[in-house]
C-alpha cells in the first residue's frame, strides 16, 4: 500500500488573478471551481498528472477565526512570508524564460544551490513563494 499526495492547499487573495496565473501562466488545468465571489475553491493541477492537485482557497474562512487571526493571516500571506510550493521541471532555463516573459514576479533567477539543487523562485499573485527545480525526469 502506498500513500500519495493528492491535493495540497494554497491561499488566494483574488481568485481570478490566481486562476489566471495557474491556468494561463503555469499551464495547469482547472479540475474544479466551486463557490462564488471571493469565496471560491479552485482545484488546479498539471496536465497529464490527474493524481495530484493544488486547491486555491480563500484564507481564514469560517467562525473558527477571530478577526485578529484573520487579519494576521492575510498580512502574513501578503508580505510573502508563509505559504509556498515546490515544483519541478526538466528544463529550468526554458521554463524560467517563459515565465519571466509572462511578467511574473521573480524572486530568484536559476542558480545551482549549495545543497545540490538547481532552482528558481517566483511569486504567485497572492504572494505564495513558488520554487521550481530542475529534475532529470519529472
Amino acid at each position: 500500500m502506498t500513500i500519495s499526495i493528492h491535493s495540497s492547499f494554497l491561499p488566494h487573495l483574488d481568485p481570478e488573478a490566481s486562476l489566471a496565473f495557474y491556468r494561463d501562466v503555469l499551464g495547469f488545468e482547472v479540475r474544479l471551481d466551486v463557490g462564488h465571489g471571493a469565496m471560491r475553491w479552485i482545484t488546479v493541477g498539471p496536465v497529464g498528472q490527474p493524481d495530484t492537485a493544488v486547491v486555491l482557497h480563500p484564507p481564514a474562512v469560517g467562525h473558527e477565526f477571530s478577526d485578529a487571526e484573520r487579519d494576521t493571516l492575510l498580512e502574513v500571506i501578503a508580505k510573502g512570508s508563509y505559504f509556498g510550493i515546490n515544483l519541478a521541471t526538466e528544463d529550468l532555463d526554458a521554463e524560467f524564460a517563459r515565465l519571466e516573459a509572462a511578467g511574473i514576479d521573480v524572486v530568484q533567477e536559476p542558480i545551482a544551490q549549495e545543497y545540490g539543487v538547481r532552482d528558481a523562485a517566483f511569486r504567485d499573485p497572492a504572494g505564495n513563494l513558488i520554487r521550481i527545480q530542475e529534475v532529470n525526469h519529472v
Binding site: E75, A78, K79, G80, V106, V107, Q108, E109, A121, G127
Partner: peptide
Amino acid sequence: MDLDTLVLMRRVRDRIDRE
C-alpha cells in the same frame, strides 16, 4: 499595516533577493 503596503514591501524584498 494595510495589505497593499505589505505587498509593496514584499516586492522590495523580492527585488533585493533577486538583485
